[in-house]
Design a binder for these strands. Structure first.
Lengths: 139, 139
DNA sequence: AGAAAAACTGCAACCGGGTTGCGGCAGTAT
DNA sequence: ATACTGCCGCAACCCGGTTGCAGTTTTTCT
């Protein structure tokens, strides 16, 4: 991912630009899938785990990325597509492949919302479908 | 929960009856909510963590209980209602209260299933709605 | 019943993802 | 230049979950 695109995006969200932040954001934007902290660690060998962690914290607070819990025990991150907030984009469907252990963002499929009994106030939805992805079911 | 009810249920599923298993199953059946390993640990002071863990493993394999990942980092367990399998019951909606940190089973609300692109094979659904529960929103 | 095998349990140690304290470094402001 | 603030790497920690092992109980086989 072009460095300047990252810098621009960081500045737009009011996040101070550093070399590590460019690297992390670039890796996430390049990735065609969600990435865990461990994924980023192996991708960016030179960068310390805690630095990546704190970078993601800042990114999340500033709505540059959001996290998804796909039930695998490790949180996944992906860049927000929305303009300012990503509360709505947050709610798209994710698919977890039990064979290749990848988590897919089905961004064009918004997560369904059921009617809840009186008194329940909804803030967010975590909708994960698990099974076998097209790649794996071909083999 | 009556001891004999537990014993009966264990035998019905072909799980060997031990005192610990009666305790764990009883605690889960009594609970009006899902329970984590830690919850069971504090509830059953006398029983070792690893024993509870292995007991839950066996229960899950024999479809006495199933687990839900509510995204809090600790897996929750609840007793299966179904006769033999609980693949369908598994798919009901759960609600996680961000204030009191309890996970509710909304057993009468089945988890919705979206249409996925060609090639995705669905095995299970993880549908967690997060927000504030009726109890907490009253205060 | 008695011996061997299998299953169950508690203890302690481990594992891995996530998190934090701290000291050093870098950039910015005064 | 000096003081301040924020960023980073290292190491250590935390916590839920998991495993190896040894002692005990239960089952199985004769």
């Amino acid at each position: 991912m072009d460095k300047n695109v990252c810098i621009e995006r960081l500045e737009k969200k009011g996040v101070r630009v550093t070399s590590i932040r460019i690297l992390v954001l670039g890796a996430l934007m390049d990735a065609q899938r969600t990435m865990s902290l461990a994924d980023l660690e192996t991708e960016l060998e030179t960068v310390d785990k805690s630095s990546i962690f704190r970078t993601l914290e800042i990114f999340e607070k500033n709505h540059l990325v959001h996290s998804i819990d796909d039930g695998t025990g490790s949180i996944k991150y992906e860049v927000c597509e929305g303009k300012d907030e990503c509360t709505v984009e947050d709610m798209h469907t994710h698919f977890y492949c039990e064979r290749c252990h990848r988590t897919f963002c089905l961004k064009n499929i918004t997560a369904p919302l059921v009617d809840l009994p009186e008194g329940f106030a909804v803030h967010s939805i975590n909708y994960i479908v698990k099974g076998v992805c097209p790649d794996c079911s071909r083999h």
